[in-house]
Amino acid sequence: MQIEESIKGWGQLSSDEIADTPVRPLNRSSFAMRIILLILSVLTIYALSTIDYNSVDIKKAVSDTLSNFKTMFLQPYSHRFSLPDAFYGVVVTMGLAFLTTLFGGIIALFLGLLAAQNLGLKQVANIIKVFVAFIRAVPTILWVLIFAVSAGLGSAAAVIGMTFHSVSYLTKAYSESFEDLDRSVIEALMASGANWWQIVFQAVIPSSVTYLLSWTFLRFEINFANAVAMGAAAGAAGIGFDLFMASGFYFDLREVGLITYFILAFAMALESLSTNMKGRLRKRI
């Protein structure tokens, strides 16, 4: 009896009230979002309508771009540049990526331990997290240019700047991996007389090691891409610098194409290597 009545009640509710209740009520933040989207679309339409097209012949521009791409990617060739040269360039770039990931990883390991909420003082952890977030908010290239003021444009500035950004990235990643281990587990080990270092190396790191590896490999891939850019932008040698010279100095589109293919092949090989290594390490752990 009662159940039937309450079901009837539900029926009424759905027909009268629920029908016109929006699923997502219009609160302040969604209202602000809509206003912003509206303003942005108005601005976009205005900008597009006021661009000065006169000096550009669209048809010609498109066909020129396509033909440039065609030379670049369909006829890769270089007379200045031999395969060993290119290989040497890539190895230099990879060295840069490896070095900065290694330095970054080691420093971040310790900072990450201090920044993990379950391992240390909450205040220290929060200070480190804020500091590291600030470093991360500034792009790698800017850090390299900042350090170039004192170290001069070149590989030294690239190493320091890229390490700096890697440290901040990996500290966040590592500390969050460490936080996966419950505080109560750490307290249990404390209660049995283990000290902080023992707990870190016997419990915290072993239980987060697969995450640590994943993040480190990911950062290595990012650093490889960064190292290419640093070669071009900060004169840090390597394949990036060759690319910069080919495009900006010799204006040799076919060489640009060749180098791009080379970087692409190398990046892919790197990716499959790191996936492979991760898999193998994971099986062993």
């Binding site: 080990l189 049995s192 007389g193 023992q198 190396f201 016997q202």
Partner: peptide, 16 residues
């Protein structure tokens, strides 16, 4: 074995 950590030097414990 974690129960033994309290008896060990820091280094021996760290290395397991």
């Amino acid at each position: 074995l974690h129960g033994r950590l309290g008896y060990k030097s820091t280094l021996a414990g760290v290395l397991g």
